[in-house]
C-alpha cells in the first residue's frame, strides 16, 4: 500500500473552522489526509498537543487561527504565533523538519485559502516523506499495550495466508 501522510489540523472555532466549513460547502477539492480538531481559540493549542501528535506518528501538524488583530478573543493568536515559532525550533532539535509544523491564518470567509493551504501542506509533507517517528511510535504502541499486541497476534493467527 502506498504511504499516505497523516496530517492533524487544529482550527479555531471562529475563523478557521468556519473557513474549513465554507471550503466544504463550496465543494472545493482537497486531499483527505487531514483530520481536524476544533478548539475555541488557536491559543488553546497546548505545545504538548503538537509534540504528542508528532510522537504518535503525525506526519504534519497545521495550526490555524484568525488573522492577527482579528482574533475573536482579542489576541489569542499572538500567543499561538510565539508558541509555534518556539516549537519549530524544538521539533528541529528532536530531528523533525520544522516544515512539518505549519501555522496559518484563515478567516471564516477564506474557504479557498483553507483548501489551498491543505493542498500545499499535503504536497509538502508528501515530499518530505513519512515522519521519522512514525515506525518507532507504531512499535512502541504495540509493545506498551498488551491488548493491541494480542489483537494483532490474534489477527495474524486467524489469517495465516497474510
Amino acid at each position: 500500500m502506498d504511504w499516505e501522510p497523516k496530517i492533524l489540523v487544529f482550527c479555531c472555532n471562529w475563523c478557521s473552522y468556519a473557513g474549513a466549513d465554507l471550503a466544504g460547502i463550496a465543494r472545493l477539492q482537497m486531499p483527505t489526509n487531514f483530520r481536524m480538531i476544533k478548539v475555541m481559540c488557536s491559543g488553546r493549542v497546548d505545545p504538548e498537543f503538537i509534540l504528542s501528535a508528532f510522537s504518535k506518528g503525525a506526519d504534519g501538524v497545521l495550526v490555524s487561527g484568525c488573522h492577527l488583530a482579528d482574533c475573536h478573543y482579542i489576541g489569542g493568536n499572538y500567543r499561538t504565533r510565539r508558541r509555534i515559532a518556539l516549537l519549530k525550533i524544538l521539533i528541529e532539535q528532536y530531528g523533525l523538519n520544522p516544515k512539518r509544523l505549519r501555522l496559518e491564518w484563515i478567516s471564516a470567509a477564506e474557504g479557498q485559502k483553507f483548501a489551498q493551504v491543505i493542498r500545499e501542506f499535503t504536497e509538502e509533507i508528501k515530499a518530505l516523506g513519512p515522519s521519522p517517528f512514525k515506525k518507532k511510535s507504531a512499535l512502541a504502541v504495540v509493545e506498551a499495550s498488551p491488548t493491541v499486541a494480542k489483537v494483532s497476534t490474534a489477527v495474524a493467527e486467524a489469517s495465516p495466508g497474510t
Partner: peptide, 30 residues
C-alpha cells in the same frame, strides 16, 4: 478561549469541555 490553559506549565488550568485529556483523546483517535 483557553489561552491560559495552553500556557499553564503545571497542567492546573483546564478548560471545561476542552480538557487536556479530551483533546488528547481526539488526537489519539485522529
Amino acid at each position: 478561549c483557553g489561552a491560559c490553559v495552553g500556557a499553564c506549565p503545571s497542567g492546573a488550568m483546564e478548560q471545561k469541555g476542552f480538557k487536556d485529556n479530551q483533546l488528547m483523546a481526539l488526537i489519539d483517535a485522529a
